[in-house]
Amino acid sequence: MIKHHPKFSLLKSFVDGDLPASLAAGIAIHADMCPICQQKISQLTEQVAEASFEQDILIKTPVSESAHTLEAAQMSFDDIISEITASDDIAPAKVIAKEKLITFKGMQYSLPNALRNMELGRTAQIGKLSRARVNLGEGEIHTNLLHIGPGGSIPEHTHKGFELTLLLAGTFADEQGEYVAGDFIMLDKRHQHQPATEHGCLCYTVANDALHFTQGINKLLNPIGAFIY
C-alpha cells in the first residue's frame, strides 16, 4: 500500500500550476496511482476554480484613464471574440495514446502518461545503477529515471536541496522501511538515506543539488553523486 504522499502545500501548488514541470509530473504520476490524492486534487481544483471565477477581479488602472482603458479593453475583447468564432474548427477528441516503453537492463517498463512527451536522454550506467535524464531545461533542478538493478543500492548520502524519489515500479527499502510503487518520497537536507533494492526498481527522481556521500570510502564515490543528480 502507498504510504508516502505529497504534503498539502505541494498539492495546492500543483493545482495552482506553480510547480516546475518536473515536480508537477511527479505529483501527477503519484495521483494516477493513488486514489486518495487524486480525490484531494479534484476537490482542491474545484474549490480553486470556483474561487478564481467567483469575484470580479478588477484590473487596476489609474482613475483618469480607467474609462478609456475599459473601453479599449472592451473593444479588444470584441475583436478577440470575432477572431475566435471565425474558425469553425473543433478540437479532436482525446485519443488514448499508445503506451510508451522504456528498457533498463533488459527489463521493460511502461512510461507514465505525464512523461510521455518529455525528452529522454540516453541511458548511462555505473554498476547496478542506470540513469536516463529527463531533459526539461529547468536549470539546477535535475530530473532522471533511475533504475537500480536487483541487489543494488545507493550509498548513504545527504543533499543540500530537496530530493524527490517517486517509486514507479518494484520496491526498495531504507532505514525508514519498505517502499512500494507510487510512494512519493520527498527528502530535504535533514535526511540521510541509503535505499537498497532486493529485486530491482525504477524511480523517477527530481533533485536540485548533487548528493553528498557521508560514509568513509563512499566519499570517494563523488561521481555517483553527480551521476544520480
Binding site: 500550476g17 514541470a21 508537477a24 501527477a28 480553486v48 478564481s52 502518461n113 518529455m118 531545461g137 529547468e138
Partner: peptide
C-alpha cells in the same frame, strides 16, 4: 475552464523560462 487556463499559462511560462516549445500541461493535468 480553470484547467484550460492553468494549462495554457503553464505552457506559456515554460516556453519563457525553460525555453522549451513542448506542451506538457495536458499530460500533467488531463
Amino acid at each position: 475552464v480553470y484547467t484550460i487556463m492553468r494549462n495554457v499559462t503553464f505552457d506559456l511560462l515554460r516556453k519563457m523560462k525553460a525555453n522549451k516549445e513542448d506542451t506538457l500541461s495536458d499530460d500533467i493535468w488531463p
